[in-house]
Design a protein around this nucleic acid. Structure first.
Lengths: 199, 199
DNA sequence: CCTACCGATCGGTAGG
DNA sequence: CCTACCGATCGGTAGG
């Protein structure tokens, strides 16, 4: 993916590649991998299905790029939020990361939600690039939780790995119930961190 | 579903209906709704695809029954666990419910995992029967969390609804990472409740 | 529970 | 980026 010719094309031809991914993300968010068809994507973009193959080699390639962009977006948002809380307490940093994760997940576009929806890629093996992008993001949380543990914030006897899995599961599960008109991201982040570490 | 003639048939003919559901559950657990085909199910059972229509009216009907059975199974397991902890503290009851939920999810068959996998039914509207069965189970948690809140265990300022959503999200998310050889249900339940309410 | 068949739709390709 | 086409497969039906 993102081989040289493709990149050159998308630079010279403007955003058709991006346009395709935008529509794919929206459709994947709603329907997941198997429900979303190339015909739907093409129709949304306003081109013929066969023309997608001018920009991408396969359906997998389109989905892979959407999913990876989604994870990268959340990753960058969380890293930026942590950078802004450089000297803060582990608890504050944890809350900032949770808020950034939820905010990126729900506040911006379809890529992030599509990532969650598609993550379990069907039964097919998850492509290595997807696993790598995911792992890189999980490392942010590994470090953050280690920080928190060293500061003595974590209950003794708890495994940092299990904590991370429960935590990300709870946050990502919000794609199933979050409604902008009913929930405020700031309040959710505050409630979440209050559960982990009551004042 | 479960109209009289069908029920009569399955009684007289033995477990072919159940056999179909068993294989459907296993396949749905792995592949989800759209990836799982009627041909696969029929082949696993050892019959022709068209014969499935002797027992069920449609693919939706099969999936619906698997999903509902899965949720009912977890529901009953949690209710039984709570009944066995009748006089215990809210914290102990919470831990028992969490343990029962995780145990039902991972320790028994494919129906429960299939339920989680299929829950987001594609883009199609979730059948009313599925929503009813789900809601009935969620009510168990609503009551349990209310109990916990009244006993003063919950952080002030937290919404019981949000707590329930985060909690069930974290528990159900375990279908994505739980491995029997790496995790012990008892330990997971203990760690989970320790997060919510440290000693 | 079977054989035989259906229209619709899938991802992908040929060739321009 | 297009038209035209492909084999494969989907859920479902007819009729026994």
């Amino acid at each position: 993916m993102n081989d040289a010719p493709t990149t050159a094309r998308s630079t010279t031809e403007g955003g058709s590649r991006r346009l395709i991914l935008d529509h794919a993300a929206r459709l994947l968010r709603g329907g997941g991998y198997h429900q979303t068809t190339l015909r739907e994507i093409a129709e949304a973009v306003g081109i013929r299905k066969a023309s997608l193959y001018y920009h991408f080699g396969s359906k997998e390639e389109i989905v892979e790029e959407v999913v990876n962009d989604g994870v990268r977006f959340v990753h960058e948002a969380v890293v930026a939020a942590l950078a802004a809380e450089e000297g803060a307490s582990p608890r504050q940093r944890l809350e900032a990361a949770i808020r950034a994760h939820l905010s990126a997940l729900h506040g911006h576009g379809d890529y992030t939600s599509a990532s969650i929806k598609v993550f379990t890629f069907g039964a097919a093996p998850v492509p290595e690039s997807v696993r790598a992008v995911r792992r890189a993001y999980e490392d942010v949380w590994r470090r953050l939780i280690a920080e928190w543990q060293e500061a003595g914030g974590m209950p003794a006897g708890n495994s940092p790995d299990v904590l991370r899995l429960f935590l990300l599961g709870a946050l990502n599960g919000s794609t199933d119930w979050y409604r902008p008109e009913r929930h405020a991201i700031d309040a959710l982040a505050r409630e979440f961190v209050a559960l982990l570490s009551p004042h």
